[in-house]
Design a protein around this nucleic acid. Structure first.
Length: 647
DNA sequence: GCATTCTGCAA
DNA sequence: TATTGCAGAATGC
């Protein structure tokens, strides 16, 4: 029986994965006023005829196959039972290699509806899908890679992802198929509600016959192919972006698919033990809060908590937001000492966050089929070129507190004899800053593998390295990070706990000493003003507007983006190159190494413990050698029985 | 149910 | 008034 799926998920699938569309009989297209800007030339208006074939008998399949096997390039799309690739069952496949013409092959259908046997489809299609020389096009093709790999039909020759192409051209716009079809092709898609009905919140494949499925599945492949034709030309006009797309982003698709397919293994005993301990402490803390407050209330409600703190207990509000007086951690820390309940609330917040978001949640996300957690590593979300992670987000697992970091100790290798190897770039963004600014002192400090924060402190405070105090170092560290984000005196004073005047002086001293950094920042801003873009080391672009705004807040914000995007985006470029190189070596040499996580400047692998040193060496080498800069790159390696690396 | 707000976790 | 994200809980429509 096919699994039903609920509308939020389906809706998400339809917009995000471009699964959408309308019945062709309704949908013959589009005549909508094109909502496109003038600088986005549109593909030719499509013809009114659509030729969508339902391939639901062996005879039709044979004829289809004869045509498909002559193609060296086509769009492929899968229909499935779930939005989560690793939980999805294959329902059907669609193909397109000529605009307006597409085919849908159902391999699952409601009782009584004709469909192809998946075994037959697999036998005939697998060689074509696996053929590296046959180029595949898709919209979010990573999803199809995972679904088809799980259906024993692995894909090679991943050639063009329309979502990724759009992301390269303009990372901040929407890359949903609907939006792109509307903007790039002038093709307006009929909303999903017209297919399943507005009141419905559940859709099973019982409710959609194969003819209806064909209409939108084939259309997805058709639209994907037409988006390909359009986006290919757009990239042709921007050769540096084309290079980024072909040499980095497209190769990365399969790397991310492999990482998602691998998933990560969790020691549920660790999580269960933590959950019990936290629950117990939480009970005590909750009771304490009620007692101190003199009443029972919902501690999770900022509104109710504010009433308790500021009305009932008479504490002074520190900050007000849109809907009321803030009770966030910064506020509570300022109030600490004024009432014993504050400390308890802070503790409650920490424990509650830990349990609900991490300890209890992660265990519930273990895939019953693989026994592992398979997050998505999203390639087309961030404005800067970083990846993001969702379902769950494995890029924000706690580490800064002792208790929180215990969550990381639940991330373990699945196989006896394996260990977790984590490799992280040391000070990648500061190294890039040194590289871009060409500051002689910083370059020399990195070349000599100095403690960079200590070194900067020594220069700013004018004392020998040995005489740098902990306080001097930590202030320099804060300003080093602050520079990357464009932090001002206010922010620095807050993060270091000094007066704004002191912070201002410190920043002035910093830029007096590192004038080349100021020059680099100004150059970023000037360039963005000139070209309209911030550009990374691999020529990734992000549009920057408001650099000439009369609103000084907007202008300052734009200036921060113009600088930060170059640094953050270049760091993202670097690790992407490393990931591609590393996965390439894993596959060509059939190494017993699995990439399982990427956390912006860190890569996590499962490797045989006996081979850990060997792998550490070449992995670090690939990472440090990803791009030759004017500074050496450094990678720190940690090897252990879990992600914490301890024991 | 959906969108918004507040809150807090990471690099 | 420091960048980039994801997500849980509450809240109001």
């Amino acid at each position: 029986m096919l699994k039903g799926f609920d509308e939020p998920k389906l809706g998400q699938l339809f917009t995000e994965l471009g699964f959408s569309r309308v019945l062709a009989q309704l949908g013959l297209v589009a005549a909508q006023p094109p909502s496109v800007s003038l600088d986005e030339p549109r593909a030719e208006k499509e013809s009114d005829t659509k030729d969508y074939q339902l391939i639901d008998t062996p005879a039709k399949f044979e004829k289809f196959l004869a045509k498909l096997s002559k193609q060296k390039l086509f769009a492929v799309d899968t229909e499935t039972t779930s939005v989560e690739a690793m939980r999805a069952d294959l329902v059907g496949l669609s193909f397109c290699w000529e605009p307006g013409k597409a085919s849908y092959l159902p391999v699952k259908a409601p009782l009584g509806a004709k469909h192809l046997k998946v075994e037959m489809v697999r036998e005939k299609l697998a060689p074509i899908l696996a053929d590296e020389s046959v180029k595949k096009i898709g919209q979010n093709i990573k999803y199809d890679l995972l679904v088809l790999r799980n259906a024993q039909m692995p894909i090679n020759g991943v050639h063009f992802d329309t979502m990724v192409a759009s992301y390269c051209l303009d990372p901040e716009r929407s890359h949903s198929m609907d939006r792109m079809a509307a903007d790039y092709l002038g093709y307006e898609c009929i909303p999903l509600s017209s297919l399943i009905g507005k009141g419905k919140n559940q859709l099973t494949f019982d409710m959609v016959d194969t003819a209806a499925a064909c209409d939108y599945a084939a259309e997805d492949a058709d639209v994907t192919f037409r988006l390909y034709l359009y986006l290919k030309e757009r990239l042709e006009e921007e050769l540096l972006l084309k290079e980024l797309f072909e040499d980095v982003e497209m190769p990365l698709v399969a790397v991310l698919a492999a990482m998602e397919y691998n998933g990560v293994s969790l020691d549920t005993r660790v999580l269960r033990k933590m959950s019990g301990e936290i629950a117990e402490t939480l009970k005590t803390v909750t009771e304490g809060i009620y007692e101190q407050a003199g009443t029972v209330f919902n501690i999770d409600s900022p509104k109710q908590l504010a009433e308790i703190l500021f009305d009932r207990l008479g504490l002074t509000p520190i900050r007000v937001g849109k809907t009321g007086r803030s009770t966030d951690a910064a506020v509570l820390e300022q109030l600490a000492g004024q009432h014993p309940v504050i400390e308890l609330v802070l503790q409650y917040r920490m424990l509650s966050k830990l349990r609900t978001t991490y300890v209890d949640k992660l265990g519930s996300l273990i895939n019953p089929r693989t026994g592992r957690v398979h997050a998505s590593f999203n390639q087309t979300i961030t404005a800067t070129g970083r990846l993001s992670s969702s379902g769950p987000n494995l890029q924000n697992i706690p580490i800064r507190t002792e208790l929180g970091s215990r969550v990381r100790s639940a991330f373990v290798p699945a196989k006896e004899g394996d260990c977790i190897l984590s490799a992280d770039y040391s000070q990648i963004e500061l190294r890039l800053l040194a590289h871009f600014s060409k500051d002689e002192a910083l370059l020399a400090a990195f070349a000599a593998d100095q403690d960079i924060h200590r070194f900067v402190a020594s220069q700013i405070f004018g004392v020998p390295i040995e005489e740098v105090t902990h306080e001097m170092r930590s202030r320099s560290k804060a300003v080093n990070f602050g520079v990357i984000y464009g932090q001002g005196a206010f922010g620095l004073s807050r993060s270091v706990g000094i007066s704004q005047a002191e912070a201002k002086k410190f920043i002035e001293d910093y830029f007096a000493r590192y004038s080349s950094i100021r020059e680099f920042m100004d150059a970023c801003i000037d360039r963005a003003k000139q070209t309209g873009y911030a550009e990374t080391i691999l020529h990734r672009r992000r549009k920057i507007s408001n650099l000439s705004s009369r609103n000084s807040n907007k202008r300052a914000q734009a200036e921060r983006l113009a600088v930060n995007t170059v640094i953050q985006g270049s760091a993202a470029d670097l690790i992407k190159l490393a990931m591609i190189a590393i996965q390439g070596k894993i596959e060509t040499e059939c190494l017993a190494v699995s990439a399982v996580l990427q956390v912006h400047d860190e890569l996590v692998f499962e490797v045989p413990t006996a081979e850990a040193d060997t792998h550490a060496e070449w992995i670090a080498k690939q990472m440090t050698g990803a791009i030759a800069l004017d500074v050496p790159l450094k990678v720190d390696i940690s090897v252990g029985p879990n992600w914490l690396g301890d024991k």
